[in-house]
Nucleic acid binder design. Structure first.
Length: 337
DNA sequence: TTAGCAATAT
DNA sequence: CATATTGCTA
């Protein structure tokens, strides 16, 4: 299962991690980056594989896990004997640890969880090492050409990666690369959420069912629940606004004891007719996307928290609050009217 | 077992 | 700030 000879093609990456599920995630991601992947759960087997196949390993990615510092051993061994660039990954990124590995020859140190973005670029370590070697010796043009040819192939692939990997026909099917540490509810993902909710009917939409309808891999019930919770909050808040307008001109009471439950029922009664259209899709057509987006709607995901929107896109916002009359995007005003 | 909610944590 | 987690009730 672990052993599988590499076909020709992309760079050949050996991944070592004691966590099998993470190992398979890594494998999947790396394959998407068109690397050839071999995985091992333990250092010893990996080492013997390297010894036996020295020539066909271009890059090693090794978790810093093992308490016995096996990862450090493999690092030293591999860098001194085979000169294979080695990337260490760990969920712990404290400076001391990083230093330890870098000073011992690691080409890079990546913090888990890894995103595909980071993996797309690891080929550069192979390239660097090769360049370095060539500098020391003399030109082996052929080798360089071969190498750059390969890396060119990879970059070509990665150019379209953003749009190809995360979505299928503009539909999010997996959230693993939508999250760094927490999930980012992007427009698209949110749309799907809304679609699911509307499909089920606002009053029948519960986390579990929403989850089923959405069909997004690795999305958890809790995440949906959390989102749903906030979603409802906004629905309520919005409806209070509209209701206050024409409901009671000479109002009397204010948000009191069980006000919210009342509002909620009112909401539900009107909701079905409001949000669902004949084919089960909502007519939410007016979440105003930033015009510049939509077409380039591939980089519309993830990023650091709330900062930055490098001329591209931003995540949606829940609140219509026109803070500073900004370009803030919010897509819950399908209340329209 | 899950939903829903509020408070709280990250 | 947005999202996650927790503790509690139903």
């Amino acid at each position: 299962m672990d052993h599988e000879l590499w076909p020709s093609g992309g760079l050949r990456v050996l991944v070592i991690d004691n966590n099998s599920s993470y190992l398979s995630v890594m494998e999947e991601l790396l394959i998407k980056c068109s690397y050839k992947v071999t995985t091992y759960k333990n250092v010893r087997e990996a080492m013997s594989f390297i010894y036996g196949n020295q020539r066909i390993v271009d890059l090693i990615i090794c978790d810093a896990f093992f308490p016995t510092e096996d990862s450090l051993l493999i690092l030293k061994e591999v860098t001194s004997k085979f000169d294979i660039p080695t990337v260490i990954m760990s969920s712990n990124g404290d400076t001391r640890t990083v230093m330890k590995y870098i000073t011992n020859g690691a080409s890079d140190f990546l913090i888990k969880p890894l995103r595909i973005e980071e993996l797309k670029n690891i080929w550069q370590h192979v390239f660097r090492k090769q360049i370095g070697a060539e500098h020391r010796n003399y030109n082996d043009a052929q080798h360089v050409d071969q190498l750059s040819y390969r890396t060119m192939g990879i970059t070509k692939v990665t150019a379209t990666l953003d749009s190809e990997i995360r979505e299928n026909n503009g539909t999010v099917t997996d959230i693993r690369d939508l999250k760094k540490s927490r999930l980012s509810w992007t427009m698209q993902l949110h749309r799907q959420f809304i679609a699911a909710v509307n499909f089920l009917g606002v009053d029948k939409a519960v986390p579990k069912k929403i989850l089923e309808v959405m069909k997004v891999k690795h999305l958890t019930r809790e995440q949906v629940a959390s989102h749903l919770q906030k979603y409802r909050l906004h629905l309520i808040r919005n409806s209070t606004q509209t209701l206050h307008k024409d409901d009671t001109p000479s109002s009397s009471s204010h948000p009191s004891p069980n006000e919210s439950s009342i509002l909620r029922t009112q909401l539900n009664s009107s909701a079905d007719s409001l949000y669902i259209d004949r084919d089960g899709c909502m007519e939410i057509t007016d979440y105003s996307l930033p015009r510049d987006d939509l077409s380039s709607g591939s980089n519309c995901m993830l990023g650091e928290r709330n900062n930055y929107s490098p001329e591209g896109f931003q995540d949606f916002r829940w609140d219509p609050a026109d803070k500073q009359g900004s370009e803030t995007t919010y897509l819950w005003n399908f209340e329209a009217e």
